[in-house]
Amino acid sequence: MNLKKPTITAAILFSLTACGSGGNNTDTTPNKPNIQNEQSQKKVADARKAEEARKAKEAAAQKAEEARKAKEEAEQKAEEARKAKETAEQKAEEARKAKEAADKAEADRKAKEAAEKAEADRKAKEAADKAEADRKAKEAAEKLEQEINQLKGISADAYPEGKIMRHDTDHVTTPTEEETQKHFQRHMVYNQKYSVILADYEIEQSYNNNTGSLENLDFSNPKIEIKGLKTEPAKIPQEGTATYSGKAFDGIFQQPAQEPFTPPTQVDEHLGNLSYTVNFTNKTGSGTITGFGPNVELKEGKISGSRISADAQHGREPGKYSLDFFGKDAEEIGGKVTLGDVDSFGFGGTRGEIQK
Rank of each mutant, 00 (worst) to 15 (best):
F261R: 09
R109F: 07
A248G: 04
I303T: 01
L217D: 13
P6Q: 15
I224V: 03
T284Y: 01
K130A: 08
G334A: 07
P260C: 00
E86W: 01
A61F: 09
E332T: 00
D129H: 10
A257I: 03
A60D: 14
A115H: 06
A137W: 01
P318R: 08
D170W: 11
T173M: 05
I226D: 02
S344Q: 12
E269L: 04
S40E: 10
S15P: 03
K110M: 08
Y194S: 10
K4R: 14
S304Q: 12
S309R: 04
H314G: 06
K247S: 08
E106S: 12
K110S: 10
K99D: 11
T180S: 04
N34D: 12
Y190N: 04
T338S: 07
L214D: 03
N149A: 13
Q355Y: 07
A199V: 05
A56D: 14
K230V: 12
A114L: 06
T174Q: 13
G349V: 05
N25Q: 09
D27G: 09
G251H: 00
T17R: 09
A156I: 13
A56R: 05
E51I: 11
V342C: 08
S195L: 12
A102C: 03
I226Q: 06
P160E: 02
K130M: 06
Y201Q: 08
Q62D: 14
P294Q: 11
A133D: 13
D218V: 14
E52M: 09
K91E: 15
Q39A: 14
E51N: 12
H167D: 03
N209S: 05
A81F: 06
S344T: 15
Q41E: 14
H183N: 14
E38H: 09
A59F: 08
I224L: 00
H167G: 02
K69T: 12
A56W: 05
D329V: 08
E126A: 14
G285R: 01
H183E: 15
I154T: 02
A156G: 09
P294C: 05
G340M: 03
